[in-house]
């Protein structure tokens, strides 16, 4: 499903060069729930961005569903993100000037051949799954952090992607709300068979996943 071959990422600024990832070889199977762990600055987010086709590796190849992405242009990668990938961010990144429905609908408006009524139907479905169908007209500012993250998850799955990439999805939430979010992610993995790759600092959460990938200074150590 996801295959990284010799992936390195070098950040170059005027003063300093940072090797954020060093020759990472990694394979994640369809339907797996994987957590990525490691100290701050070890390259976890960089890894997720590269898997998510938001960033390109300096060297190495990322394959998704057998498609080598290094030769794809921006438009193809964007289309692939839209169809196969769903993102959940630590600080939610909902669009503040859109209400819940419009936020969740976002991936669908970048997809052709879906009517407005179909889109609304899909949005209602996924909001029901995250338990927020009664908040459709709310603005993000009117929601709690946990609710925001559930909206963000609804947005990530509305387009029915195979892969969900979550970068510290509970990092900004208290324990109880974090547990709710984790439960939803596990359901999406178990019930729908979606592949989930999650970055976390929480050992307990990580233990509940099928596999833990550990990083240190850009290298995979287990």
């Amino acid at each position: 499903m996801i295959k990284l071959t010799d992936v390195s990422k070098l950040y170059r600024t005027s003063e300093i060069e940072t090797l954020a990832l060093e020759k990472v070889n990694l394979e994640i199977n369809k339907g797996e729930f994987v957590s990525v762990m490691g100290p701050s600055g070890c390259g976890k987010s960089t890894l997720l961005n590269i898997i998510g086709l938001l960033d390109t590796p300096t060297t190495g190849v990322v394959e998704i569903d057998g498609i080598k992405t290094d030769t794809l242009g921006d438009a193809s990668k964007t289309a692939m993100r839209n169809a196969r990938l769903g993102f959940v961010f630590q600080s939610f990144h909902l669009i503040p000037s859109l209400n819940v429905t419009d936020n969740v609908e976002l991936p669908l408006i970048y997809r052709s051949g879906i009517s407005a009524s179909e889109r609304r139907e899909r949005v209602r479905e996924v909001l029901e799954r995250v338990g927020l169908s009664h908040r459709m007209r709310h603005m993000p500012a009117q929601l709690s952090g946990g609710q925001c993250q559930r909206v963000a998850i609804a947005r990530a799955i509305v387009g029915n992607p195979d892969i969900i990439l979550a970068d510290e999805p509970t990092g900004n939430l208290d324990t109880r709300m974090g547990a709710e979010v984790m439960e939803i992610l596990h359901r999406l993995n178990k019930e729908d068979g979606r592949t989930v790759v999650m970055v976390t600092h929480n050992e307990e959460q990580a233990r509940d996943t099928e596999r833990i990938i550990r990083f240190l200074d850009g290298r995979q150590i287990g």
């Binding site: 998510g52 938001l54 921006d74 438009a75 964007t78 289309a79 993100r81 839209n82 169809a83 993102f87 990144h93 669009i95 503040p96 000037s97 976002l106 991936p107 970048y110 997809r111 947005r155 387009g159």
Partner: peptide, 16 residues
């Protein structure tokens, strides 16, 4: 700018 990034992540091409 954040909104622009989010839209790009969820499938908005440059032209769009």
């Amino acid at each position: 700018i954040k909104e622009i990034g989010v839209r790009r992540a969820f499938g908005c091409t440059r032209g769009r």
